[in-house]
Nucleic acid binder design. Sequence first.
DNA 1: TTTATAAACGCAACAATGTTGCATAATTGT
DNA 2: ACAATTATGCAACATTGTTGCGTTTATAAA
Lengths: 130, 130
Amino acid sequence: MAIIRNTIAKKAVFEIIQLNKTAMSQTEIFAKVNNICDRVTVYRILERLVKEVKIHKIVNINGVINYAPCNSCSHEQHLHHDHLHFSCTTCKKLTCIADNHIELNIPSNYQVAEVFLTVSGICPDCIIMA
Amino acid sequence: MAIIRNTIAKKAVFEIIQLNKTAMSQTEIFAKVNNICDRVTVYRILERLVKEVKIHKIVNINGVINYAPCNSCSHEQHLHHDHLHFSCTTCKKLTCIADNHIELNIPSNYQVAEVFLTVSGICPDCIIMA
DNA sequence: TTTATAAACGCAACAATGTTGCATAATTGT
DNA sequence: ACAATTATGCAACATTGTTGCGTTTATAAA
């Protein structure tokens, strides 16, 4: 029903997310949009992009919500959970790692929607630093 | 070094977590302690219980941190990730589901610490209601 | 039982993240 | 160019979590 508008701010936010290798929080994204819009607008744009399945929402292990592009993962793939998130405890970066197909063993009276698989640890960049 | 004290508030918080079937947030736990202590104290007690490996911390898909007892899962089991969390999108309850052993396919230059596996969907109770 | 000591607490204040209402601005189909 | 309605800015608020500091309390030792 609703007509989707492609505004300047929305394009900017989407581009920032797409160009970044790791997932980003609203705070990080807002810092990069260079006052092109209000921080509330960033929240609302992110909400819309999620609804349009252009980006997806990932909760980091500290509870902060991050956003990553839906490039490699189609909606179906995402649903069939063959991708995983690595959360670095040192630099706090959240990275997508593909090719992880997992088998679940959930009682049939549960209705599964999405699978979130996050692994914490130290990423290659931070191991080198140590 | 530090001597661990077993205070009234700590006992109450631990009991609340143990008696509850699903994981609970600080807000829910605080609501149940009946003003036996300050909300800050609840946060600090939870912190201590996590450190003592009596309870564990789980981030729900909305970013809220929840706490569950470490009954069935020993620290080692937890590390070897054979248990999973089901996050109901309707009632927001977070339930532990055992017997889920998963194989990971992560590049060797990542150093893995912990595995967090959360599945969203609708829990049996909410399916009945619908 | 009393006392010393460090752990635990309460309170107040702060910080970060996310949400809502409403008036105004901007995009898009016609 | 215009109308319709989507998107935005601003202000205010809500929730969750944290910190500092003076006071209270649990515990071990006297």
